[in-house]
Amino acid sequence: MPRLLFEKKGNAVWISHLDLMRLFQRAFKRAGLPLTHGQGYNPRPQVSIALPLSVGIESSCELLDFDLDGASVPAEEMKERLNRALVEGVKVLEVYDEGRKIKHLSLLECTVALEYDTGVPAEAVSGLRELFGREEVLMEKKTKSGDIQNQNIVSMIRRMSVSQKDENALELRALICCQNPTLNPMQMAAAIEKYLPDLKPDFAKCARLEIYDNDETIFR
């Protein structure tokens, strides 16, 4: 099944996962690229996005699998036609004839920007390094069945750096588990609020940069 790599930035980050699927279904139609449809009572065009992205998070590494109904179109042409049919902020970067099995996708490189409106506290960088250097940082997570489970988030962070971007912002850059188990990067910002309330940022926002398999090879 063909796969495409796309980015989601700017105002498009506010589009939800389900809305994004519908947006792509329509974009394929506008681009004159008919998709195969599922079976069933009300057949829908089939597209599938690898790791659903939370609303508000930007990304340069989203994968979408699709299947064209009809003649194949060269990858480069498909990319151009789709980009003409998409909205600002959603952009196809690459089209592949075939992708790797999604189950081999396991790591995500991401940033969490921490904004302090009255300036970054002096002890913040060292404080955060200490926090994420601990053996165990427990955070509550809601399971699918609605139960609350404690999750040790540092066990899911393979690497992390803390750096000061400017006088009002810090940046966490981390390589984290994104499948079995999954760490939502916003949990790192939430952990600061829980364990170091004095270092709670005024605003935190997250970005996905790249995805890898378990051997840290870029995943496509």
């Binding site: 105002n11 498009a12 506010w14 589009i15 329509r26 974009a27 609303v55 508000g56 049919a85 909205v87």
Partner: peptide
């Protein structure tokens, strides 16, 4: 941008749709 994460269905406040 700071308010949007706190409200339901933020995409209805941003514009930027096709056409």
């Amino acid at each position: 941008q700071r308010i949007l994460p706190t409200v339901q269905k933020p995409a209805r406040y941003t514009g930027g749709e096709y056409n």
